[in-house]
Design a protein around this nucleic acid. Structure first.
Length: 553
RNA sequence: GCGCCAGUAGCUCAGUAGGAUAGAGCAACGGCCUUCUAAGCCGUAGGCCGGAGGUUCAAAUCCUCCCUGGCGCGCCA
């Protein structure tokens, strides 16, 4: 059992003996200061004020109930009324048994209670290649999905493909114009609302190689449509392969057209209408989103008869909910934050709680090269693609950087920094820790300190402060993941791994593991056991970030 | 004008169920490789947690106001 749970149970029993309930606001946490023990609780502080008692007196009463626990070295009342718990080393040793029993499942939990969650992420318009900003969304969405799965949620991942509407039409028009250039027609500069990127020329060239100039003989609308279809297909293929390369694979690719073409939007509008949430004004159809806290009502159908993007989005989310998910998580670029209230209003209008849709907003990424910001705009065709960045710095490094920042703060992605192989670039630091351990094991087997296939199992002898500290870190792994899942914050995992790697590197430099002296064989095997446990947790953690754990570097 | 996010060491950032003396990396300075990977380790220095009030045993964390930066506020997608 993990330390925190153990103490919580202990305290709860002590409270019952006093006829008290565990207070909502009480906590059990590893304190910052070493002198405050392995775990500390403020339970007495929280309870005393409402009981008219002195916190320290109550703490002392609880302390007396707990005294004599076999795994505890001692319990102290401290400061204004904290209870500080000190474990015996044997308690920490059992963490390693758990690691070996559970292996790649160590750290997993059932905290999510099987909740069905759909994580939608990236969902970039298929009108151009993924750029670096999408990479951040991909890393966050993918890692979050993995963490949620690991913490007992039932997770699907989805990419919403905006394959209809005006932007696709513009894609077709852009390609067609470039295509006509290739056919020798006079080339005006592309209209401003067209996609200007070089990739449009590539698509036009490819189309020309396939079809010759036969598109010239189609009427404009038909030709644009064929260009759009072709471009969409190619770009989507590219997006899929970029994401696969990046280690983020969506289970479901949901096409907007599957809703718009099957009348899904109409159906959803009707159901809103039946609830009296829809009205006509100025020739347009409106959704009364202000009823659910939005700033103003939103148009569903414009006065020209066209449905808005928002209308399709409501239908899309209705579809998601109808598929049986308990909770929807959308990973969005923060520039869409203005869209959040109306979307949550929609979810409420669909008969669900506001929080059944959570929006994880990922702030923008500024790309830095040679100390200068690189400006980016999809439409103007100025951007650095995700694929280029991955080729330049490697997917492991890119993912780790993205996942080392909380998503609601801006991120300066410094290409020169990420290419460095030192602590500027923490991914190597963590990977290096894993490779080092693997290397020690290789040597240990060569020297016969341990059998070729044998997993170490010795647990005694690990009593140095640093050793116990490492064990405590392993003990916290599972709880940390639950926190990351609860707050939708994969970056907590990155920081945990960096700290764990740091503690290991430090230990490694101070204590020899492969001790030649035969009389120290047991200690050597105990330390190998510890290292093996650390390596397992590094592997488990890195795998949740979608980063490799190499055996050599 | 309104709204969202951010403001913590020189730089990049952690710190979200309010906890005890605010952390890490980089950069700076000084040390550690004939022994397990120096992509590493040890040490020194570095702070009015944007500002001002408030809530309480306790605030970087919660509330109010203000300052600065980014983003967003369409019958666009």
């Amino acid at each position: 059992m993990h330390a925190k749970q153990y103490i919580q149970d202990l305290l709860q029993r002590a409270l019952w003996q006093e006829g008290l309930e565990w207070p909502e606001k009480a906590s059990v946490e590893p304190p910052r200061e070493e002198e405050h023990g392995d775990m500390a609780s403020n339970a007495a502080l929280v309870l005393a004020s409402s009981m008219g008692q002195k916190p320290r007196d109550l703490a002392q009463t609880l302390q007396e109930h707990i005294a004599g626990d076999p795994y505890l070295d001692r319990v102290e009342v401290a400061g204004p009324g904290f209870l500080n718990f000190f474990f015996k080393p044997e308690f920490w040793h059992q963490v390693l048994s758990d690691v070996f029993e559970q292996g790649s499942g160590f750290g997993a939990s059932s905290a999510g209670e099987g909740e069905r969650v759909l994580v939608e992420y990236v969902s970039a318009n298929p009108t151009g290649p993924l750029h670096i900003g999408h990479g951040r969304g991909a890393a966050v969405g993918d890692s979050l999905a993995r963490i949620l799965r690991f913490t007992g949620h039932k997770v699907d991942t989805e990419y919403y493909v905006n394959d209809s509407g005006r932007q696709v039409q513009l894609l077709g028009r852009s390609i067609l114009l470039r295509y006509k250039e290739l056919c020798g027609e006079h080339a005006d500069p592309l209209p401003q609302d067209c996609y200007q990127g070089e990739y449009i020329r590539d698509l036009a060239r490819e189309l020309f190689d396939l079809r010759g100039n036969e598109l010239l003989y189609l009427d404009q609308e038909r030709a644009e449509a064929e260009c759009a279809e072709f471009g969409l297909k190619r770009i989507l293929e590219q997006i899929r392969s970029d994401l696969r390369e990046f280690g983020a694979e969506h289970a479901i690719w949901f096409r907007e057209s599957s809703i718009t073409e099957e009348g899904g939007v109409e159906g959803t509008l009707e159901s809103l209408q039946q609830q009296g949430l829809v009205y006509e004004s100025e020739g347009a159809l409106w959704f009364a989103s202000t009823r659910y806290g939005d700033d103003k009502d939103r148009v569903l159908r414009k006065s020209d008869g066209e449905l808005t993007y928002f209308a399709a989005d409501i239908a899309y989310h209705a579809d998601k909910l109808a598929r049986g998910y308990d909770r929807l998580i959308n990973v969005w670029g923060a520039d869409h934050h203005g869209y959040v209230p109306r979307m949550q209003a929609a979810v409420q209008a669909l008969g669900r709680n506001r929080d059944d849709l959570q929006l994880l907003l990922v702030q923008m990424v500024n790309l830095l090269r040679d100390g200068e910001y690189v400006s980016m705009s999809t439409r103007a065709g100025e951007f650095v693609t995700l694929a280029e960045v991955c080729r330049e710095v490697g997917t492991d490094a890119a993912r780790f950087i993205f996942l080392s920042h909380k998503s609601d703060s801006h991120l300066d992605f410094d290409l020169d920094l990420v290419k460095k192989q030192n602590m500027d670039n923490p991914v190597y630091y963590v990977q290096y820790a894993h490779a080092r351990i693997c290397s020690v094991f290789k040597k240990a087997r060569e020297r016969g300190y341990i059998g070729e296939e044998e997993l170490p199992s010795a647990l005694g002898g690990l009593e140095a402060k640093e050793e116990l500290d490492l064990l405590k870190r392993l003990d916290r792994f599972s709880e940390m993941l639950q926190g990351a899942a609860r707050t939708l914050s994969p970056h907590h995992l990155s920081f945990y791994l960096r700290d764990l790697a740091g503690a290991f590197h430090s230990y490694y430099n101070k204590y020899p593991v492969l001790i030649p002296d035969d009389e120290e064989r047991e200690l050597c095997r105990a330390r190998l056991t510890l290292l093996s446990g650390i390596a397992q947790v590094l592997r488990n953690g890195l795998s949740l970030l979608g980063v490799r754990a190499p055996e050599t570097m």
